[in-house]
Design a binder for these strands. Structure first.
Lengths: 225, 225
DNA sequence: TCAAAAGTGTTCAGGGTACACCCATGG
DNA sequence: CCATGGGTGTACCCTGAACACTTTTGA
């Protein structure tokens, strides 16, 4: 039966990772300067070819780990990109993924080694291939999910203030939110719990630290910002 | 530079089409009985291998046309499926698409030739490979879009009654809707316009026929059911 | 004492939901 | 004349939006 398949064409398949992180309060993506042709020297998403012994998700996690040192990270497939000439080097079909990481935990050394840097979403440089379309689609998916599913906490430290949380939502949704309404909504979500810790770094007065409780969410499934 | 790529593995890449149609008022999918190994004789989505001279969308449209005779159809990518052993015959990475077609316009002869049939979504048989997961994901995407974007009209004839439209929404969303509230919402969407035609086939009294006006939608972008 | 961020309630309007009866017609 | 689907309006509730001042404390 393999004979039947063998009449058909085979393709290089790659994954490209849109790695989101919160850098100094701003939603940013991790971009690498391409170290090889084609488009050597241009900024691009971090990618890699899929191997025979791994599925697509594993390939994406491998690439993410290479660049950040992180495993067990929230990732989601964005989709497959298959224009014939999307890669001028050869025909490559690429599957894009986006990941949400806690900026504080990533390995800056690896980022440096790969000639990569964090770029504010509002200041994207020119990118190679169809990477702008990938980022566009990932952002659309992210924004849609952000208000209805508790995925934003992947971008924050374990303990966070409500101001940090609100700033995150404003940064991702791209619009200012009313502080009192925001806190009201947070207040009646059981999965966002206050701790007895205080953060003194952000203000003289100090702000209560909160944490996200995954178990509570799995029970009541109540989330809406 | 092609030398650089050539160290890497290449893969068969296929597309699989989840073709939705409204058969006797029920949301249905078009399934084909596999005519070849592996899993010959089992029901499956219609698929095909991607060729060198076409992009993924074109491949999906080609497969859709093969089975239904239709072109220029609403299609959307569901995602890439790349488990190592998803196809027991050989490693194949597949990109799923879903399509919404007007049941009345498809070519039944082609369906017959391909040993395919329309199956009510509630009565899916056992399917080959990871096709159940593909359908699941396509359905989730469909349901999500259905209330906020005017895609349902792709499943209806050009002229339709409000009862047909409501039945469609109930079938896709899987829940009954209040008739008066439904009609109230329709009434203040400019893009759904009454015609002077009457449908007498569905009732003794006759029902007004409506049509969807794409141009109006492009202007006001107002749609919400 | 002042600058800077944290924290806190109420009011109002609009949209969504629930709900039941008459109409027109073909057989 | 009756069975069948077509067509219509109102009342209520609740959610979402708007809005401004006091508190704390380090410098």
């Amino acid at each position: 039966m393999t004979d039947f398949y063998s009449e058909n064409s085979r393709f290089y398949v790659s994954v490209d990772c849109i790695i989101f992180g919160l850098n100094r309060g701003r939603l940013s993506v991790l971009l690498a300067r391409r170290g090889f042709e084609p488009e050597k020297g241009k900024w691009s998403l971090m990618g890699g070819f899929v191997r025979q012994d791994e599925n697509l998700n594993d390939a994406a996690m491998r690439v993410l780990r290479q660049l950040t040192g992180l495993s067990d990270i929230f990732m989601e497939q964005v989709g497959a990109f298959g224009e014939i000439n999307r890669d001028p080097g050869d025909r490559v079909i690429s599957v894009a993924y986006y990941a949400l990481i806690n900026f504080d935990e990533h390995d800056r050394h690896r980022v440096m080694i790969h000639d990569a840097r964090w770029v504010d979403l509002a200041e994207l440089p020119e990118l190679s291939f169809d990477h702008p379309a990938m980022i566009e689609k990932a952002l659309a998916m992210l924004r849609r999910k952000f208000s209805t599913e508790p995925i934003g906490f992947n971008l924050l430290p374990r303990l966070f203030t409500l101001s940090q949380l609100q700033a995150l939502y404003e940064s991702v949704l791209g619009e200012p939110l009313d502080k009192r309404n925001f806190r009201k909504r947070v207040a009646d979500m059981a999965c966002i719990r206050i701790t007895d810790q205080i953060d003194k770094t952000g203000s003289r007065r100090g702000a209560a630290l909160y944490r996200y409780d995954e178990d509570v969410y799995r029970n009541d499934h109540k989330f809406r910002i």
